[in-house]
Amino acid sequence: MKVLVTRAEPGAGRTADALRERGLTPVIAPMLTIRPSTDIALDLSGVQALAFTSANGVRAWANARSERALPALCVGDATAAAAREAGFENTLSAGGDVGDLIQMISKRMNKAAGRIVHVRGSHVTGDLAGSLRAAGFAAEEAAAYEAVSADRLPDAAREALERKQLSLVLFHSSRAAAAFTALVDDADLTGRLSYLIAVTISGQAAESLIRSDWLAVKIADTPDEAALLDRVGAARLDP
Rank of each mutant, 00 (worst) to 15 (best):
I116Y: 14
F180Y: 10
P26D: 01
A178K: 02
D224Q: 12
G46C: 05
R236S: 09
S131A: 15
A113K: 13
A176V: 00
S202Q: 00
E159L: 13
A216K: 14
A156W: 06
A16M: 10
A179S: 04
T33A: 11
L70F: 06
L19M: 08
S93K: 09
R59V: 03
S66G: 07
G203A: 02
A113F: 02
L183Y: 03
G121C: 03
D188W: 13
R211L: 10
T222E: 15
L44D: 00
R120Y: 08
V232Q: 03
A80N: 11
G96E: 12
T222Y: 09
N63Y: 01
R20S: 04
D224T: 13
V47A: 06
M1H: 04
D188Q: 15
G114R: 08
R192S: 10
V58K: 04
L24E: 07
S174C: 00
I105T: 11
D151K: 08
L228T: 02
L183G: 08
T6E: 01
E9V: 08
M1S: 11
V47R: 04
A147Y: 00
R68Y: 08
A129C: 07
H172K: 04
G203M: 01
T222S: 15
L168C: 01
A156K: 05
T125V: 01
Y145P: 09
F180M: 05
S167N: 04
L161G: 10
T25H: 09
D151M: 05
E89L: 00
T200D: 10
P239A: 13
D77E: 15
A142S: 02
A216W: 05
G191S: 13
L193H: 09
R7K: 11
R133C: 14
D151R: 04
L73K: 13
Y145V: 02
R59M: 07
E225A: 12
P154T: 07
Y145C: 05
L229C: 08
P36I: 04
V199T: 10
I116D: 14
G46P: 06
A16V: 05
L32K: 01
T190E: 14
F171Y: 11
F180P: 06
A157W: 02
R108W: 12
A94R: 13
I102G: 11
G95W: 15
A29L: 09
A41W: 10
